[in-house]
Amino acid sequence: MTVTSEKGYYYYKAPRETYKMENVACGVYLMANPDEIIEVHFDYVDMPCENNDIVSFVDGWELNGSYFPNDEDYNKLDRDRFREYCGKKRIKEILESSQNAALVRYQVPKAGKGFSFYFTTRKNPTPCNILVESSTYVYTLRNYGQRINCSLLLMNPAKIQILSLTVGININEKSKYMETGTFHNCDQNRISDYVQIGGGVELAQYSIITDTICGIDSIPGDIMDAIFCGVTKIRMVSSGNMNNLITLTIDKVKAEEIAEPGVLCPTIPSQRK
């Protein structure tokens, strides 16, 4: 497993010892800035199909069978998520991710065989799903008036603070200056558009949801959560009937801060999605 955000050429050639890894899939996990998408071009593939050599492009990240974005948040057809290649060829198409995360996954049991690819990025005018690095930053999730789910994920325990919220309330000329404040447990009150805050031990699924919020609140200063899970996740669910937007900061929790008040993560994932 290799994780990188460094653009350029990557090349892999299977060593002689590769026969010991016949059933092992390896991966190059690519990451870009939050407002970018990833482009991958395979300029060389030499991997015999009959030996089960294969290289694939995954739109998003996969880890232990769990995906980011998960199936509910992936805004394309499932068949668009994967591209697989073998044989000896040059691949003409340029493969694009839907967000700032992508994966090149490969299995090359035959020594001397391999592939190369070029990784670059370009601006994404409508970022939705975002994979976050550990540094503190201000992020905005919005649905652009569409029926899509957007999520922000950090693969660490984290502190989250909501800076502004406009979710689940229709805004028109009469109500655009109205402040409702922040409502809680919105998903349990038959509100179709809301934001889930929580974490888990997998990329795709929550182990715990600490809150589900909606409303119009320009200064929700008291909304702050510390999530002590391996994965921290904020997910905005949108029906397409409203323009939803949430702005927040997310900051990796330091080791000495884990003893502070916060939400501990169960080791067994919850069935709640």
Rank of each mutant, 00 (worst) to 15 (best):
K176Q: 14
C49Y: 05
S98E: 05
I250L: 15
N64K: 14
A32V: 05
V167W: 01
C49P: 11
Y194D: 03
C265V: 07
P157D: 05
G200M: 11
N143Q: 10
P125A: 04
V104E: 01
A204C: 12
A226W: 07
A255C: 02
Q107V: 14
D225H: 14
G60C: 02
W61Y: 12
Q205C: 06
S270A: 15
S135V: 07
R235P: 01
Y11S: 14
S270T: 15
I38C: 06
N149A: 09
I250H: 02
K233Q: 14
R190C: 06
L154F: 05
I216H: 03
V55H: 03
C214N: 05
V3I: 13
F57G: 09
L103Y: 09
E93Y: 03
V24E: 04
L63P: 02
V45L: 09
T121M: 06
E62Y: 01
D78H: 08
A14V: 14
I171H: 10
I162N: 03
K254N: 10
A158S: 15
L245S: 15
Y19E: 03
Y106P: 02
M31K: 15
Y11R: 11
G262K: 09
F119T: 01
I209F: 06
I38L: 12
R142I: 00
V28G: 00
C26Q: 14
L264C: 05
I197D: 12
C49D: 11
P127M: 06
